[in-house]
Structures are given as C-alpha cells and as structure tokens.
C-alpha cells in the first residue's frame, strides 16, 4: 500500500515522459541496464551510465531516510554534484534513451531539491508520503461528518478562527477609513499591536514545529502506527495554524502599509 502511494507520488511528476521506463520489471531496476552492476537511483556506480528513473520518493532519490532534520549544506552539495553528473549536455553523445533519462532524472532532481531544501515544503511532502492529504483534509472531513450526521471538527481551532475573524473585521474598518483618508490612529495602533503578537505567535509555532521534527526523527523504526499518527497530527495542526497566521500577517501588513 505505502509503496504504491510513493510510486504514484513520484509518477505524478514525470508521468508524461517516463511511462516506458517505469514498465520495467523489479529486477531490471536493481541492476544497471548497461553493465549489470547493482545500480544507484540515478546512475550506475560502476560504469557511470545514467539510469532510467524509477519510482522513488525524494528522500530516497537523495539517499536519505525520511527524517525532517536534514543538513541542507550537504543536500546542496549533493544537488550540485548530481546536477553536474546528470546534466543532459554531458550525455549529448550518449544514445537517445540515455539522453531522455538524464533529462528526466535532472528534472526529478530539481523537484526533489526544491522540495527538500525548504523545511516547510519538506514537512508537507513527508506528510503526504505518510498518507496525509493536506489539501483534502477539509473536504474529506466534511464528507465523513455528513455521512455520519455529525458535526465536523474544524481543522482550525475555534479560538484561532475567532481571532482571525475579529482582526479581519478591524482590517476592513481600517481599509474603509483609509479610503476616506481619515484613519483612526487608535485603530492603527491596535492593529499594529496585534500584528506584533501574531508575528510572535508565528515564531513560536515554527519553534514548536521543530520540536515535532525532532520527535518524528526520534521515532524508532518499529514505532506503532498510533505513535506515528500522533506526531503527524500535531504537525498538521501546527502547519494549519501557521499558514493562517502567515496569511493574516500578510493582510495586516498590506493594510497598514497601503
């Protein structure tokens, strides 16, 4: 089940141009097509030939385990190293298949690097690999609640929603005042104060998220699904709150500076 999901995730990025290489049998992906040595994900360690892309997740692509704390300096170095080796220009004299593979591998490399170097994107990606559908969580929960005739538990806590709503009301008022050129200094000050609070909250949420990266990375290989889920849920919750506050800070800045 999990491996099928990973394969789908991978194929989603290169679907259009790798169908032929992905139809290979399992055995064929383990050895180099050219010299038969055990192959790496991207190119053969023995003969250096570019390999056809195989369905792997971005962590595996870089030879990393699914951990959230990672050395980005090392990742960058590895990225440049691989970019150089996989560069399509280097394979200009190779046969057509190899040229295609190097193109596909390079594009995969770029996607993988872009995703993993950013800690938030990395977290979201890992959560998707773990089966969390970040974009679908609202819809799925709504459908479940409807079917069960229950009230859906909001993915965003009510207190935060209340705060977001109230601040938006004040922002609307300030926008209207600004249009008339008569903004109320007290309101500007109040909103400015809230902006500072939000920025602090954003920072502390980011810090808390880091704690859960550590917690995730410390999970033993034989951790129960229950244990993994707990950490995942917490990260999803923190990401949700964080994105709300980020948007709010953005809106506040727009109004205050506008």
């Amino acid at each position: 089940m999990a491996s099928v999901f990973v394969a789908n995730l991978f194929m989603g990025n290169v679907e259009s141009n790798t169908s032929s290489s992905l139809t290979m049998t399992g055995d064929a992906t383990a050895t180099c097509w050219s010299c038969g040595t055990m192959r790496a994900v991207h190119f053969c360690s023995a003969c250096g030939k570019v390999q056809p892309p195989v369905p792997v997740d971005y962590f595996t692509f870089f030879g990393l385990s699914r951990k959230l704390n990672l050395n980005t300096a090392l990742l960058e170095r590895e990225f440049y190293e691989l970019s150089r080796k996989l560069h399509p220009d280097l394979c200009a004299r190779a046969d057509k298949r190899e040229q295609e593979w190097s193109l596909e591998q390079s594009s995969l490399l770029n996607d993988a690097y872009r995703t993993l170097k950013d800690p938030i994107k990395r977290t979201e990606y890992l959560l998707r690999l773990e089966g969390v559908e970040l974009e679908e969580q609202s819809k799925a929960a709504t459908e479940k609640a409807r079917a069960a005739g229950e009230i859906k538990k909001q993915v965003v806590p009510p207190d935060l929603l209340e705060e977001v709503f109230e601040l938006n009301m004040q922002l609307e008022e300030l926008r209207a005042q600004k249009k008339l050129g008569e903004d109320d200094p007290a309101l500007v000050e109040e909103i400015g104060r809230q902006k500072l609070e939000l920025e602090e909250k954003y920072e502390s949420l980011s810090e808390e998220l880091k704690k859960y990266w550590d917690e995730w990375d410390r999970l033993p290989g034989n951790a129960t699904e229950e244990g993994r889920r707990k950490v995942r849920d917490k990260m999803v919750d923190l990401l949700n709150r964080r994105s709300y506050i980020r948007n709010l800070v953005r809106d506040v800045s727009e109004v205050l500076e506008g």
Binding site: L134, E135, S138, Q154, V155, V156, P158, L160, L161, E162, V164, F165, N168, L239, N240, R241, S243, Y244, R246, N247, L248
Partner: peptide, 13 residues
C-alpha cells in the same frame, strides 16, 4: 457557524 480553511486562510461566519 464560524469556519475556516487553512489552505487559503479564509474565514466564514
């Protein structure tokens, strides 16, 4: 009813 969508930061009452 006060609800929100974290994906886009919308809030609806």
């Amino acid at each position: 009813g006060l609800v929100g969508a974290p994906e886009c930061g919308d809030v609806m009452k």
